[in-house]
Simulated scan of single mutants.
Amino acid sequence: MDVIVAGDRAELAKARESLGGGSIALVPTMGALHEGHRSLIRLAREHADHVVVSVFVNPLQFGPAEDFSRYPRTFDADLEACAEEGVEIVFAPSAEDMYPPDRQVSISAGGMGTVVEGAFRPGHFDGVLTVVLKLLNLVRPDVAIFGQKDAQQLALIRRMAADLNVPVSIVAAPTFREPDGLALSSRNRYLSAADRATALALSRALRAGAARETPGEILAAARAVLDEAARLDPPLLLDYVVLADPATFAPVAEDHSGEAVLAVAARVGSTRLIDNAVLRLS
């Protein structure tokens, strides 16, 4: 079966009807698909009868100084990847179709949207939640798949679905890594060989933290790796390293037990990268 490309809401409704029943999984993406995205699609296939992939570079989640205009757009290759993975529908709307010119209402991410990643990208999570809710309303999936690499985004989407009674199951997909440990990202293509060597400090810092036991020890071990990378050429410019509650992204206390997210964000050259690891503290 060939992939159906739906370029607007009307075409999506028609394509969805053609599926003829069965459960649907949605994999929202901004395109520039890589093996990490393919792993999301494969997980979606395990959870539903049909898979829909959205390809939409969402302008609402980019700040004025961010890389919206140069964000990689590789639609033909994306479509080929979806066909190889057995995706039935690719929803690729225009910004005009997603956002009418008289649009007034958006989703607020609340307090959790202003901390950690949200503190460095004001309004980012409002834009993420707005587009995700629109996609969920349009596709009406039973399941939606999101990557654990964007841990705070995942937590906020789960919070939104619960708070607004969105009838969808949110499934987290493990972070897909390259053999050297770098988390796959569409932005990795911006990295030079020297940039990439420095960027590997992110995953090294997570591993160093994961080898410790208490929050203080975990953060100290991760920071030691990141401080060393700050002296490399090119240097790693740290935005944050935090150990946070996976449901709220508030910092965990020193006596915290249970899951915690060790999250890091940094710039290497002109590229900003994020990564995280879910740890279990006892």
Rank of each mutant, 00 (worst) to 15 (best):
D67F: 04
S186L: 04
Y71L: 09
V241A: 14
L26V: 06
A10G: 02
P141A: 10
D49Y: 03
P234A: 10
T248Y: 03
V3Y: 13
K14F: 00
K149Q: 09
V57F: 05
A10Q: 11
M112D: 11
V139N: 06
L135Q: 08
V105Q: 10
V128S: 05
L226P: 07
V52L: 03
L79N: 13
R267P: 00
P122Q: 03
D163F: 00
S54A: 04
L236R: 12
A95D: 07
V252C: 03
A144R: 01
T175N: 04
G31N: 10
L135C: 03
E11G: 12
D97W: 05
G20D: 11
D142N: 14
L237H: 10
P215A: 10
D245S: 10
V57Q: 05
I107F: 02
S270F: 05
L238C: 10
E228Q: 15
L156I: 07
L136W: 09
V264A: 11
E117P: 05
D180R: 07
D195Y: 01
T198R: 04
A266D: 09
L238M: 04
G22E: 12
L206D: 02
S108D: 13
A277L: 14
V225Q: 12
L202M: 12
P28R: 06
S270M: 09
G269R: 12
H47K: 11
R212L: 04
A260H: 12
T198V: 01
P141D: 03
A253S: 15
A224Q: 14
V139I: 10
P141E: 11
I274L: 15
A183Q: 03
Y99S: 10
A265Q: 11
N276T: 12
V225G: 05
V264N: 07
H124Q: 12
D163L: 11
R16P: 01
P122H: 07
L206Q: 13
V3A: 11
